[in-house]
Design a protein around this nucleic acid. Structure first.
Lengths: 154, 154
DNA sequence: TATTGTTATACTCTATAACTATA
DNA sequence: TATAGTTATAGAGTATAACAATA
């Protein structure tokens, strides 16, 4: 999960270190998907740590940044985060003055980024894009084809 | 995460319910990968619940089933599970008489499935394959091309 | 001195249930 | 009666540190 097998091998074609174990999982779609996802998640987590944001916090910041005044409940649905878990997540961002809320009616809240939140959102987006680019460069196939395939799965 | 949009729409082509929020994340590789992975994981978790196995337990069972007598430490590395977390995982499977261990030398253990473990491993493999097939049918692109792309990412 | 396995522990994510208030 | 937000709590999964025993 953290190794990078891109070193030059002195004894030409030593066939890679490789696991001593054979695994039928390695050729299965769901397993490969999970490993690829974990690899990319690990990288983006690292790159967001420098600005003290979790992936959930960054996602929320980005979504609200692109939809000022949106409903909290819609954010939860869009990110597949349960409302019980959304409250403390938003609470932390409000505590850092990155986000502000206002009542829409007696029960719904609208969310908007503060100026500081907007600045951090842009920085987060920049880092997420940079991380994505790093991995996209490894692809030989067209990115669009891959994205379409992934959308069909979720 | 749990919805299944496979219902027939009465008013033809109502363009889908869709989120009221626009999200730049939706077209990003890492995000699509995570959503696709979560969708497949959710399905396989459901299908393994009936035989009382978590994904981690099933993975371990399958790996040991295909590599009888393998080292515990190698299993951990192959599945990217830390040794501190492997101990209780194996402990549960030993408690259910699905797996047995034997010392290789004074510090390493070899793992092997019991007869009962072998039977459950086959059932688990069957369920994992069935879940995978379900999703593979949604693909228009060649599965091999997708698997190759995913391997390049992890 | 590095590796193996274990224990204890903590942190993050996610899940459920109960509650209030509102549409 | 269904929805929105909150609180409290529990459960996975994963992470680190320390330890004993062994190679």
């Amino acid at each position: 999960m953290a190794k990078d097998p891109r070193q030059t091998n002195s004894k030409a074609e030593e066939q890679a270190p490789e696991s001593p174990l054979s695994s039928p999982l390695d050729s299965m779609l769901g397993y490969r998907l999970r490993r690829a996802s974990m690899a990319m998640m690990g990288d983006v987590i690292d790159s967001l740590r420098a600005i003290d944001l979790s992936v959930g916090e960054a996602s929320l910041l980005i979504l609200v940044g692109h939809n000022p005044g949106c409903r909290q409940s819609d954010v939860g649905r869009a990110l597949a985060i349960k409302r019980a878990n959304l409250t403390p997540l938003i609470g932390r961002l409000k505590g850092r003055r990155l986000i502000s809320d206002a009542p829409i009616d007696g029960r719904s809240l609208s969310l908007t980024l503060t100026e500081e939140g907007e600045a951090l959102q842009k920085e987060a987006m920049k880092r997420v894009r940079a991380s994505n680019r790093k991995f996209q460069k490894r692809l030989t196939m067209e990115e669009k084809a891959l994205l379409a395939a992934l959308e069909a799965l979720s």
